[in-house]
Write a protein that binds this DNA or RNA. Structure first.
Length: 439
RNA sequence: GCCCAGGUAGUAUAGUUCGGUCCAGUAUAUGCGGCUGUCGCCCGCAGGACCCGGGUCCGAAUCCCGGCCUGGGCGCCA
């Protein structure tokens, strides 16, 4: 087959911009064949681009022979261009169609696609992920990642507005940031190194200089998790704020969430419709429950959790039924939290750490951090960690570590909530989990 | 790491209970033919599958054993 080059053709419109008021005008469209419906004397092509679809109508007896011939070779997913006249019509759902004067075929596709790109016969998740480049062309996939894009843009602009500086901490690190055994090891020129599980210590150190700092980036957990809400590589939206405590950053967090939901609801109505998701902008403030209150609520539901113990997923599922939307859980037992979380001054058994839950899913965790070096060393020891391993971090506490607090949002989990999609792998372009390393 | 469920055409599934009616049905996709207003187009025809290996049996998609692969739950967490 003879393929065409773009030549002097320049896209004039995306599919979504082809509107009835362009009636009679010539447009140049680039995209892919989503569907061909051939009725004999009449052929319909659905051109898809990243913004949507538009119908190309070919009345076989009334177009130039070369246009007819070109339109005849087109199959699903062929990349092509159309130069044609917009026609206002009540025969299509969009109210427009394009009758081509010229067609260019840029590239072909296999006859039998691995998944149904029109969404009539949906494929299972592993089939979709194996064919991810194609799967991402589905309107539902595009809608998902458009929403994630808009959400992240909203978060960034909100934080910029509040005076935060964006930072980039290392992914390759020399020792465990939080002391867990859940790090991936790598060979760093013969030296043992790790992939960062969080930017926690670096962003704390940056409060010395930047004061208000955030980072968006991938982090790595070598946990053999097998659930619909865990990844080996996930994207964290991390902030740290100097001269602030948990209450301050909780207030900031709920504003960020509120803003993000508002922007997505406003800008992504079409995408939400494609996904069939009705997004509610949450009312502020979010409910604040102490750990102890949560235990009482659970007890009332017949779920006994001894004070001091972690709350199991099953227990959170019960709690999520009582509080199906956003809620904070505060005042966690100190020993249940990471070493850098500050114990309360009035009751050291209880910490200033918090989680932001959505139903049973933990979306964010954060808290006031310890800024006193000796206290931090004590907490390291209590956690069974060796302060010597944290020497490089601890030096920051010799240079006037300010009181500070922060949190981390799981971007993929946020996207799940925004889209209503139940599997975290669907909202991740190329997910990495216990068994998946490709594509 | 522990536990559960499952592998049937490109895709999604029926059939597995209680072995024979299944050289495996349906939808969609693909190929060919037809059709001038489709938009889950329609009509006709065609090709296309029981994860792998072993076992039981007259007979295995179905039962048993082993392997491989996948999904999900727990723990952990974002």
């Amino acid at each position: 087959m003879n393929l065409d080059s773009i030549g002097d053709w320049v896209r004039t419109h995306y599919s979504s911009q082809v509107s009835p008021d362009l009636d009679g005008k010539e447009v140049t469209l680039f995209g892919w064949v989503q569907e061909v419906r051939d009725l004999g004397g009449l052929r319909f092509l659905i051109l898809q681009d990243r913004e949507g679809t538009v119908q190309i109508t070919i009345p076989k007896k009334r177009v130039a022979p070369e246009v007819l011939a070109k339109s005849g070779v087109l199959q699903k997913r062929f990349s092509f261009g159309v130069k044609g006249i917009v026609k206002k019509t009540n025969m299509t759902t969009r109210g427009v169609e394009v009758v081509p004067n010229g067609i260019k075929v840029f590239s072909t596709a296999t006859e039998q696609l691995p998944i149904d790109i029109t969404g009539k016969t949906p494929a299972n998740i592993e089939v979709r992920l194996d064919a991810r480049p194609l799967d991402l062309t589905l309107e539902s996939s595009l809608a998902t990642f458009k929403i994630q894009h808009v959400a992240l843009e909203a978060i960034r602009s909100f934080l910029f507005e509040k005076g935060f500086m964006e930072a980039h901490s290392p992914r390759i690190i020399a020792s465990a940031t939080e002391g867990g055994a859940e790090l991936f090891t790598i060979d760093y020129f013969g030296q043992k190194a790790y992939l960062a599980q969080s930017p926690q210590l670096y962003k704390e150190e940056l409060t010395l200089s930047f004061e208000k700092v955030f980072e968006v980036g991938p982090f790595f957990r070598a946990e053999e998790s097998h659930t619909r809400r865990h990844l080996s590589e996930f994207t964290s939206v991390d902030i740290e704020l100097a001269f602030a405590n948990a209450d301050d950053v909780m207030a900031l967090l709920e504003q960020v969430i509120h803003h993000t939901f508002s922007v997505v609801k406003e800008k992504c109505q079409a995408e939400l419709t494609v996904l069939g998701h009705n997004l509610e902008v949450p009312a502020l403030p979010f409910k604040r429950l102490t750990y102890t209150q949560v235990l009482d609520d659970l007890k009332a539901q017949g779920v006994e959790v001894p004070w001091g113990e972690d709350i199991s997923t099953d227990a959170f599922r019960v709690l999520g039924k009582i509080y199906p939307y956003f809620y904070f859980v505060t005042d966690w037992p100190t020993h249940a939290k990471a070493f850098y979380i500050k114990p309360r001054d009035d009751n050291p058994q209880v910490s200033e750490g918090f989680d932001l839950m959505f139903g049973y899913i933990e979306l964010t965790s954060g808290g006031t951090r310890i800024c006193d070096k000796n206290q931090l060393i004590e907490r390291l020891k209590e956690k069974g960690l060796n302060p010597d391993s944290f020497k490089m971090h601890l030096q920051a506490f010799d240079y006037g570590m300010p009181p500070h607090a922060g949190w981390a949002i799981g971007l993929e989990r946020l996207t799940m909530i925004l889209t209503g999609i139940k599997n975290i792998r669907e909202v991740t372009l190329y997910p990495r989990d216990r068994v998946r390393l490709t594509p």
